[in-house]
Each structure stands twice: as C-alpha cells, then as structure tokens.
Amino acid sequence: MNELIAERQLMLRIIEKDAAALEQLYDQYERVIYAFAFRIVQDTMTAEEVVQELFLRIWNHAERYDGQQGKLMTWMFAITRNIAIDMLRRKSSRHAASPVTNEVIHLIPDEHISTEQEVENRWLGEKVSEALAELSEEQQIVVSSIYYQGMTQHEVSDAFKIPLGTVKSRVRLAMKQLQKRLGQLDLLRDTARKEETI
C-alpha cells in the first residue's frame, strides 16, 4: 500500500511539472518499459521512440492516471503497448507486411541487476515466462500474435489459416491456464481496475 501512495505522490509532482519527479519515474521504470517496448517492436530505435512517447504522454497528461485504479506500472505497460502496437502497424503499412514467424532477436545481456526492484522484476519475469512456456505451441503463437504483434483474431485466423473459433478457444484456454498458474504463485489480487488510456 505504501508503494501505491508513493506512486500517487510521485504522479502528483509530475502533474505539477516537477522535472525531478519525472526523472525519478524514468529511472525507476526505464529498463522494464524499454524491454517490453523492444519485445513488441523488435528494434532498438523504435523501442526508444516508444519509451519517449510514453514519457511525453505522462508529462503532458499525468492527471489521467487514477491511483485508485491500480499500480502505476500496470498503467504504464498498457500505454506502452498501445504506442508500440501503433508504431508496429504504421511500420508494417510502410513496408510490405509479413507475419513474424521466426523472430531473431539480438539481445544485450542485462549486466546491472543490483537493486531490489530489479531482482524482484527478474523473478517475476522468470515466473511469467515459465507460465507462458507451459502453454502449447499453438496457444503461444496465437497469444504472441495478438499481444505482441497487435493482430486481431481475424488477422490471426487469416495469417495462420486456422478457423476463427479455434483462435478464440486457444486464447481462452491459454489465458485461463495463465490465470491458474499465476494464481498458484499468489500473484493475483481481487481489487478491480478500469481500462487505462491516455
């Protein structure tokens, strides 16, 4: 709870255009946000653009964060995904789009895991990755195509030549399995939130 209060106070300072508060927020979330953006756009410069757009929106519209609705990081991830998917779509409209079926990613190992938060993030990341890895290959493809590539169920159906109903059922089963797995780790809570947009 203290964490939530601290986040709200930080955002209040940003609303008041406290540049130091924005820098604090940036330092706190740079790595996880950048990694997430890169996971979606698969390009270092575009990922940087995504992060910049995120912080630009936060700086200009911090008042839209409602601390009652949940964690700041969740809100930031949701906006990051929106921006990244939007950039992906624009990019694919510029170049002849081809489904990403075999992603080759050049990753730079993270050599600066020192803070408690980063250790916790790493642990969480491993657990979620394990849960995702337990999905069937078909489920992983469908979830990845929708979540990381911004495809709709119809686009997935067309791209992979599978019936729409199958797409739907794979997503349902995958999400329920993830829910069960994360629930076993006691990571899920009961409080409700609302949709985040900026």
Binding site: V32, R39, V51, D110, I113, G125
Partner: peptide
C-alpha cells in the same frame, strides 16, 4: 493476468544516452 505479461520480456540494456535524449 495481463498485467504480468510485460514482465516476461527479456531484459535488454537501453541504448547509451537514451535517458538524456528522452528527458
């Protein structure tokens, strides 16, 4: 459940100077 999916992203070091450029 969705809130946790971003955490599964592989760690990657941001480009040098990104913070200064963005801020």
């Amino acid at each position: 459940v969705m809130d946790f999916l971003p955490m599964a992203s592989e760690p990657i070091t941001p480009p040098v100077g990104m913070k200064n450029r963005i801020l």
